[in-house]
C-alpha cells in the first residue's frame, strides 16, 4: 500500500461527498476500478462520512416501488452470479493457475481481498461436486454445490481435517447452490493446507458432532 498524495485524498473525499461534476465523477469511477489504493481511500471516506446520513429521516416508500423492484429484480431470470461462482459450481478438475486467472478476471476489485484457498471435492463416481473457496482475510468460506444432491432424508456435511486432529464440522451443506460459512477464529490458524471432506449424514448433520456417514469426497485446500 502506498500513501496517497493529499490531492488524491481530497479527490476521493470529493467523490464521496458528491460535489464533482459529471465528467470528473466518471473519471474517478474508472480509477476506482483500476487503482486499489485509491479505491481503499474511497471506501474509508464512505465509512467515515456515513454517520452524516443519520440526520436523514426514513420515509416509507409507496407500495408500488416494491412491486416494481420485484418485477425487475426477481421477475427476470437470475443474473449468472459472478463468473467464478458459476464456474466453481461445475468445477471438477481445474488447474490452480487457470482458476487463479478466472478469479482475478471475473471478480470485482475488492480492497479487502486476502489470500485465497480453494478445494475441489469430487466423489469417486463424479456425481457429487463441491467447491470451497476460503478467503484468509475475511475468514469466510464460500461453498458451491454441484451435481447430485443427497438422498431426501440425508444431508452432506463439510469437515475440516488438519493433521492428525479429529475432523471438525464446518456445517451442513446447502442441498444445492451456494452458501457462505464463516470459519471460527480458532480454526483459521490451521486451515492452510488442511483437507476438506464431505460425508453423508442424517438430515441436519451428524447428531453428536462426529461423522457417522460414508465419506463422499475429500480434497486438500490449495492456495491460489
Amino acid at each position: 500500500m502506498r500513501d496517497l498524495p493529499p490531492d488524491d485524498i481530497a479527490l476521493a473525499g470529493e467523490y464521496v461527498l458528491g460535489t464533482l461534476p459529471l465528467s470528473e465523477r466518471q473519471a474517478v469511477t474508472r480509477r476506482i476500478a483500476s487503482d486499489a489504493d485509491f479505491a481503499r481511500e474511497v471506501a474509508r471516506w464512505e465509512a467515515h462520512l456515513d454517520p452524516l446520513a443519520e440526520e436523514v429521516m426514513p420515509v416509507s416508500p409507496p407500495r408500488r416501488v416494491w412491486a416494481e423492484i420485484e418485477a425487475r429484480a426477481l421477475g427476470v431470470p437470475e443474473r449468472a452470479p459472478s463468473g467464478l461462482w458459476r464456474w466453481l459450481a461445475g468445477a471438477s478438475a481445474i488447474s490452480a493457475a487457470f482458476l487463479g486467472a478466472i478469479l482475478w478476471l471475473g471478480e470485482p476489485l475488492m480492497p479487502a481481498q486476502g489470500r485465497m484457498w480453494v478445494s475441489d471435492m469430487v466423489s469417486e463416481d463424479g456425481a457429487v461436486r463441491l467447491a470451497a473457496l476460503y478467503n484468509e482475510k475475511t475468514g469466510e468460506m464460500r461453498v458451491s454445490m454441484g451435481g447430485a444432491a443427497p438422498a431426501p432424508e440425508r444431508d452432506f456435511e463439510l469437515w475440516l481435517i488438519a493433521g492428525d486432529a479429529a475432523p471438525v464440522s464446518l456445517g451442513v451443506m446447502p442441498r444445492r447452490g451456494q452458501a457462505a460459512m464463516p470459519i471460527p477464529a480458532d480454526l483459521r490458524q490451521v486451515i492452510a493446507n488442511a483437507t476438506l471432506a464431505i460425508t453423508e449424514e442424517p438430515r441436519g448433520g451428524a447428531p453428536a458432532g462426529v461423522a457417522t456417514g460414508p465419506l463422499v469426497a475429500k480434497a486438500e485446500l490449495r492456495r491460489i
Binding site: A43, E46, A47, D50, I69, R72, A73, L74, R79, P81, S82, W85, P108, M110, P111, A112, K137, T138
Partner: peptide, 18 residues
C-alpha cells in the same frame, strides 16, 4: 438501488463497511 443490491450483494465486504 434495490435492483443493484440484488445484483451486487455478493460484493459487500463486511470489514470495509457496516
Amino acid at each position: 438501488v434495490f435492483v443493484k443490491v440484488w445484483m451486487n450483494a455478493d460484493r459487500y465486504v463486511p470489514e470495509v463497511a457496516s
